[in-house]
């Protein structure tokens, strides 16, 4: 699905060859500051490599229109920003930005359930707790019509039970629908339980794969 060839990004990343396969859950682990988030940003073209190339389904990313690419490779950022308005407004943000027809309310309710967020669609997004905001942001991303999902520490602000529930749904659903997932996590348990492939990053380089 993704192939890195001699990729350098500033003095942060040095990835001569890294491959991420389609249809599986790949997890990036590694110490803070090792470059995991930067890799995700490269994958959905929020930034581009200083040198080298990244291929997506065999095509050079530099040649794929960025906005279109971001619509098919959806990303949950590490500290997602909330838009003013309600929980519902935030769930619909992606649809509005992409000018897609809005979904039924039942689909939104279902998403709230899937991310374990017990709030009404009309409640204010700004008044949610940190973990609730994170789950809302996750729901917002899950609603996107993408083939690849990038999750940057989706469960860092969640307790263990909620974490298990959310990650299970997330990976389970994606697998059913044949989606590709790239996950960044600091949790050893999450990495070992849910991933098909674990990539260890340290100092901007690949240190190992399992």
């Amino acid at each position: 699905m993704f192939e890195f060839r001699d990729v350098l990004y500033k003095d942060i990343l040095d990835l001569p060859d890294l491959e991420i396969q389609a249809g599986i859950v790949t997890t990036l682990v590694g110490p803070s500051g090792s470059g995991k988030s930067t890799i995700l940003r490269l994958l959905n073209k929020m930034t581009s490599p200083t040198s080298g190339k990244i291929f997506f389904e065999g095509k050079d990313l530099a040649e794929i229109p960025s906005v279109e690419h971001r619509r098919s490779v959806a990303m949950l950022t590490q500290s997602p920003a909330m838009f003013s308005g309600t929980v519902g407004d935030n769930l619909l943000a992606g649809f509005r930005f992409q000018q897609r027809p809005l979904p039924e309310e039942t689909e939104l309710q279902e998403t709230l359930y899937n991310v374990h967020l017990n709030k009404s669609l009309a409640s204010s997004a700004m008044e949610l707790s940190g973990g609730e905001k994170q789950r809302l942001a996750l729901g917002r991303v899950l609603l996107m019509d993408a083939t690849v999902f990038l999750f940057d520490e989706p469960s860092s602000a969640l307790d263990e039970d909620t974490e298990r529930f959310v990650i299970e749904r997330l990976t389970g659903q994606a697998k059913e629908k044949g989606k590709t997932i790239v996950l960044v996590t600091h949790s050893k348990a999450v990495a070992e339980t849910y991933s098909d492939e674990i990539v260890e990053i340290a100092g901007g380089k690949v240190k190992g794969r399992k």
Partner: peptide, 17 residues
């Protein structure tokens, strides 16, 4: 900046963002 970035991540064009 973070809101604009978030909008881009969610598939917005710079104009919409």
């Amino acid at each position: 900046k973070n809101l604009v970035e978030e909008a881009l991540v969610l598939g917005a064009t710079p104009k919409t963002a």
